[in-house]
Each structure stands twice: as structure tokens, then as C-alpha cells.
């Protein structure tokens, strides 16, 4: 597969990337020069012109920098996507060599990789389910109730977020070893739930505290029971937050390497597989998984956007009607 066409495509792609990068730099530098020049001109030509021109240049300078930074953020993803169509020249090579579709046709060709992906999905589902439930309950307690020890609970919830993963991983390993618990699938799940819970609490809490509490009061004034108010008013409004938290938890779990590395025993998740393979030579199919994950994430974000847009548009027509009524 590939041959001359592949080499042609690779060369073209390389040249294209170089060209784009150079153009980025040129634009960025151009803006910088323009900004300098703009400031110089501005000082000579008085306040009015200065203000107009200066602001124009300042605006566009910021836009150019932002575009460059965005390029920096997206470059590795583009490279991963490109490498998923690459037939590397040797096992330890990371350079573009030949174009091929083989990696996509047979993503499981790399020995053990698909089993690792499956393992990651299993861990991810269990960890997401448990952490979403635990975290949502905690978020409700923290937002809706005033109780003794609230500050301490807040600290405990945020502490894992503020702890580097190496410390989380090693401390759990120290405990497991001291308690004589063998490491494996379930210790990985335990570890993942531990660091996902905090993110769930923070995400759901943000949604919950942004919610108008008077809606529930209104429901209960209209003779809804506490449970009905929760079921029919609160839950539907908080659900997007819970869904976002679950998505976040899954992606954190699926992608976790450091904590898993210390607590997995012989269980091989996808990141563990990649880590091990990086020393022996990375099979190109790894990039197929990376690209597929990116595509799935894009789809889910697009879907959530569509969902939110439809609710927002219905809400905005409602609010428009209500303001008109008030006038």
C-alpha cells in the first residue's frame, strides 16, 4: 500500500505544514510590526486618529496571537490524525513516511492494543457511574444545605484536584501495599473514582448554584410535593450539568496514565499500553485510536451544543414574551 503516491502525499503534507507554519509566523510578525508602526503613526497624528487606528491594530494583534496559540493547541491533534494514515519506516520512527489506509482498515493489528482500549472503556464506565452518583449527591448537599463542617468538606473535595497525580498514585500504592491488597482492575477503578469525584462535584455544583431556587419554591407553592418539585423542576434543570460531569469523568478516567501506572498491577489500560509501547516502538494504530477519540469528542460536543441551542431558543422566546408582557 502506498508506494509513490504515499511518498508524494507525505511530501505534499510536509510542505503544506511548513508553508502554513511559515505563513502563521509571517502574519504574527507582520502584526507586531504593524502594531509598532501604528503606535508611531498614532503619536504623530493626534488623538482621534491615534485612538481609531491604535484600537484597530490592537484588536487585530490580539486576534493574530490567539490564532497562533490555537494553532499550537491543535497542531499535535493534526499530527496524530496525519500519523494515523502513516506507514512508519521503522518501529521506532515518528516521522511521516508513506501514506496508507491499513491502520484504519485493521486498527486491532497491534498486538494487545484493542484489549487495552476495551479495558479502558470498562474502567471508564464503572468509574464514571460511581463517581457521578457520589459527586452529584455531594454537590446537592454542598449547594442546598448549610451544615456544620461544610468548609472542611469543601477542602476535602478540592484537595485531590490540587494534588499532583504522582502523589495521588504513590499514596494509594503505599496504602494498598501496606494493607496487602493486590493491584488490578478494581484498584484502578477505586483510584479513578477518587479523582473523578472532585471534578463531578465542581461541575454539578456550578450548574446547581447557577439555578434559580425560586423555581422550586414556585413549584411547591403550586402544591407540588418536595419529591415532585425535585423530579419535575430541579432534575431536568441540573441534568445537563450531570451529563457534562459524567462526560468529564469518563474522559479523565479513560485518559489517566499516572495514577493508573502506580495501581494497575498487570492490568493494561490504553494509556498503559501506549506507555509500554513507547519504549518498544509505537504501532501506528495508536494514532487511529487517538483520532477516533477526538472525533467522538467532537461529535458529543456538537450534540450537546445542538441540545443546548434548542432549549435556549425556546427559553429565549419565552423570556421575550414575558418582557413584552411586562411592558
Amino acid at each position: 500500500m502506498g508506494g509513490r503516491f504515499g511518498r508524494f502525499a507525505a511530501v505534499r503534507f510536509g510542505r503544506f505544514a511548513a508553508d502554513t507554519f511559515a505563513r502563521f509566523v509571517a502574519i504574527g510578525f507582520g502584526r507586531f510590526a504593524a502594531d509598532r508602526l501604528g503606535r508611531f503613526v498614532a503619536e504623530r497624528f493626534g488623538r482621534f486618529v491615534a485612538d481609531r487606528f491604535g484600537r484597530f491594530v490592537a484588536d487585530h494583534w490580539v486576534l493574530a496571537v490567539a490564532a497562533l496559540v490555537l494553532g499550537y493547541l491543535l497542531l499535535p491533534v493534526a499530527v496524530v490524525a496525519g500519523l494515523s494514515f502513516n506507514q512508519p519506516s521503522s518501529r521506532l520512527s515518528y516521522d511521516f513516511a508513506e501514506f496508507t489506509l491499513d491502520n484504519w482498515r485493521d486498527p486491532c493489528a497491534g498486538p494487545g492494543m484493542c484489549a487495552a482500549v476495551l479495558r479502558s472503556v470498562q474502567v471508564g464506565f464503572v468509574a464514571t457511574a460511581v463517581s457521578t452518583v457520589l459527586g452529584t449527591l455531594m454537590a446537592f448537599a454542598l449547594v442546598r444545605h448549610r451544615f456544620r463542617g461544610r468548609a472542611a468538606v469543601n477542602v476535602l473535595v478540592l484537595a485531590p484536584v490540587a494534588t499532583p497525580e504522582v502523589v495521588l498514585g504513590t499514596s494509594l500504592l503505599a496504602l494498598l501495599v501496606a494493607a496487602g491488597i493486590p493491584q488490578g482492575f478494581w484498584t484502578v477503578v477505586i483510584a479513578h473514582v477518587m479523582f473523578c469525584v472532585s471534578f463531578v462535584v465542581v461541575t454539578v455544583r456550578a450548574r446547581l448554584s447557577g439555578m434559580d431556587g425560586r423555581l422550586e419554591e414556585a413549584a411547591m407553592d403550586l402544591y407540588a410535593s418536595e419529591w415532585q418539585a425535585f423530579r419535575r423542576v430541579t432534575l431536568p434543570l441540573v441534568l445537563p450539568g450531570i451529563a457534562a460531569a459524567a462526560l468529564l469523568a469518563f474522559s479523565l478516567s479513560f485518559d489517566d496514565f499516572v495514577v493508573t501506572n502506580f495501581n494497575s498491577g498487570t492490568t493494561v489500560t490504553f494509556p498503559m499500553y501506549v506507555w509500554g509501547a513507547s519504549q518498544r516502538g509505537i504501532p501506528p494504530q495508536v494514532n487511529v485510536v487517538g483520532t477516533a477519540m477526538f472525533a467522538v469528542a467532537l461529535l458529543m460536543l456538537a450534540a450537546s451544543r445542538l441540545g443546548r441551542r434548542s432549549t435556549r431558543s425556546s427559553r429565549s422566546t419565552r423570556s421575550r414574551r414575558s418582557t413584552r408582557g411586562r411592558r
Partner: peptide, 15 residues
């Protein structure tokens, strides 16, 4: 900004 985080962290680092 967010979507790259969904592509495996190790794979992106290798990129």
C-alpha cells in the same frame, strides 16, 4: 480548546 484534551494525553505528547 477542549477537544484536544479528549485525544489521549500520551498520544498527543508523542506527536
Amino acid at each position: 480548546v477542549v477537544a484536544p484534551m479528549f485525544t489521549s494525553f500520551l498520544v498527543r505528547t508523542l506527536a
